[in-house]
Design a protein around this nucleic acid. Structure first.
Length: 500
RNA sequence: GUCCCCAUAGCUCAGCGGUAGAGCAGCGGAUUCUUAAUCCGCGGGCCGCAGGUUCGAAUCCUGCUGGGGACACCA
């Protein structure tokens, strides 16, 4: 806390001014509205009331300029000493000395244009609404350069409130994130699907390969897991008779943090009865076209310096064929030794032991095929070994009816014709259990209740998971997941000192 | 988990063995159309923390902490 600002509080109180008043301040316009409509005189701007942070002061003698920043933008203020003849201290002391940059104020006045052509509020009255006791990293820009830019990512993420105050573009990004979620919700609602909420605390976790966060419930004295996925619950709801359900799901995975991964992240999952993954591919194309057009305004956008085109239909490649295109041979025919040889040739590290044959194939795919898919690309028909919840392919051995949508070299969505044969499902989960027993930390645990639900009959169902954070990254051209999370996980900072 | 880079004033950064610097922000003064306002004056720092080397360390070395990046993991 700035001791000078702290002292100003006492000074204000001596003048009878409450630095944190209770009375509301009713505004009747915004900075953006004034700047947009004043030139055409479409609205009456003779008595505007507007609130925001004091952003700049250009003090002169008997008259001064300032800038006010509200949520919509910045607008210049003009103060004249002669306007405060009844209370001269309001200009000379309160405005000129006791108000600091960052203070939240409300002003009332009329709009005019200065000699230099800037739309400005001539302030007749102003009120301090909340004192700002720390100096903000207010940036100053000229044509040549920006001064005091607040750019340190750590500080920006730790003090996102400051980041948001200082950077209108960051505020805009998170508006866009909300717009993306809203567009998806509108799309699903228009189709008649039901938005639901399922447990975040789960006695058995499942639906994905990941290590969970573990917690404990005292009253029931039981171990609980934060969900890594809501998939198995949404399928139970399809068993229960809903035709289409979806949920925006915060999922938690106890794994590493990098520019694509945060321990908690958001997916939307959708399950629709009586459909299959082919149908789901078309739905995803329709969904993304709609969302991108609505949010970006154009199906072509720039991400990391490359153009991405969301015009449907997206490219489609089958898993093993895509791999064959990269390595020149059908990896299904290769021995484990030949696969290892291939990895060596391409300078790709072996997976962590204990690994199986399929892990070598996966590694090849992840390192060669995924990064090469820049434009939206459906990869379909994944190996059955890596897809324990997907239905076996209707006509081909060894693969399942599953697709991933890859954009900019990263998985954006994952979908199956859901496995609804409870006997097959049990075998697949038993294999997962065996992998866990062998030390596979990410293999799925057995979920007997889920199997019981399947035994009551899950209709043929298409299911989808779509990563909201990654979609937001692409649609905002954001370089890391931290940039699209309001409060990304950081290590704790050392304790702040109490400051009175 | 491994490797590389970074940490100096409220913010952005310079200084890289010899008395801690700049711009912006701040404080005092002048100023009735400024907009990085201008002009005069002023204050501000455990140079991330702890050790070590040295006559002398912000500067060199080691460790720690925090951050960034790459790799690994996340099929």
């Amino acid at each position: 806390m700035d001791p000078i600002r702290r002292a100003k509080i006492e000074e204000l109180r001596r003048l009878g001014i409450d630095p944190f008043p209770t009375e509301p301040f009713q505004t009747n316009t915004t900075a953006a509205e004034i700047l947009r409509y004043y030139p055409q005189q479409k609205l009456d701007f003779k008595a505007v009331r507007i609130a925001g942070r004091l952003w700049r002061k250009r003090l002169m003698g008997k008259a001064s300029f300032a800038v006010l920043r509200d949520e919509t933008g910045d607008i210049q203020l003009y103060f004249q000493r002669d306007d405060f003849l009844d209370k001269p201290e309001m200009y000379d002391s309160v405005f000129k000395k006791l108000l600091d940059l960052g203070d939240i104020i409300g002003v009332e006045g009329f709009v005019f244009t200065t000699k230099t052509g800037e739309i400005t509020i001539h302030v007749r009255h102003f009120r301090l609404l909340s004192k700002c006791l720390r100096s903000l990293p207010i940036e100053k820009e000229t044509e040549e350069r920006t001064y005091a830019a607040f750019t340190d990512p750590e500080l920006r993420y730790r003090m996102r409130y400051v980041d948001l105050i200082v950077h209108p573009g960051v505020r805009e990004l998170f508006r866009r994130r909300t717009a993306i979620v809203q567009a998806i919700r509108d799309f699903f609602n228009a189709k008649g699907y039901l938005e639901v909420e399922t447990p975040i605390l789960q006695p058995v976790y499942g639906g994905a390969f990941a290590r969970p966060f573990v917690t404990h419930h005292h009253a029931l004295n039981m171990e609980l897991f934060l969900r890594i996925s809501n998939e198995l619950y949404l399928k139970r709801l399809i068993v229960g008779g809903y035709t289409g359900v979806y949920e925006f799901s915060k999922d938690f995975r106890n794994e590493g943090i990098d520019r694509y991964h945060n321990p908690e992240f958001t997916q939307v999952e959708l399950y629709v009865a009586f459909q299959d993954y082919y149908w789901m591919m078309e739905l995803v194309e329709q969904l993304l076209e709609g969302v991108v057009r609505k949010v970006v305004g154009n199906l072509r956008l720039s991400y990391e310096g490359r153009e991405i085109d969301f015009t449907a239909p997206f490219a489609r490649m089958r898993y093993y064929e895509a791999l064959e295109r990269e390595v020149g041979k059908d990896v299904r025919r290769l021995s484990e030794r030949e696969l290892i040889q291939l990895l060596h040739e391409r300078n790709i590290p072996l997976p962590e032991p204990p690994y199986e044959r399929i892990d070598l194939v996966s590694q090849l795919f992840d390192k060669l095929v995924e990064p090469a898919c820049i434009q939206p690309t459906f990869i379909l028909d994944y190996p059955v070994e890596v897809s324990p919840l997907a239905k076996r392919h209707r006509s081909e051995e060894g693969v399942v009816e599953r697709f991933e949508l890859i954009v900019a070299g990263k998985e954006l969505a994952n979908a199956y014709s859901e496995l609804n044969d409870p006997l097959d499902q049990r075998e697949r989960l038993e294999r997962q259990a065996a992998l866990r027993a062998a030390g596979g930390l990410e293999a799925m645990p057995m979920d007997e209740d889920f199997l019981r639900a399947l035994e009551y009959g899950l209709p043929p169902t298409a299911g989808l998971g779509l990563g909201i954070d990654r979609l937001t990254m692409i649609l905002c051209d954001a370089p890391s997941i931290q940039e699209v999370l309001l409060f990304p996980l950081l290590r704790p900072e050392p304790p702040l000192e109490a400051d009175r």
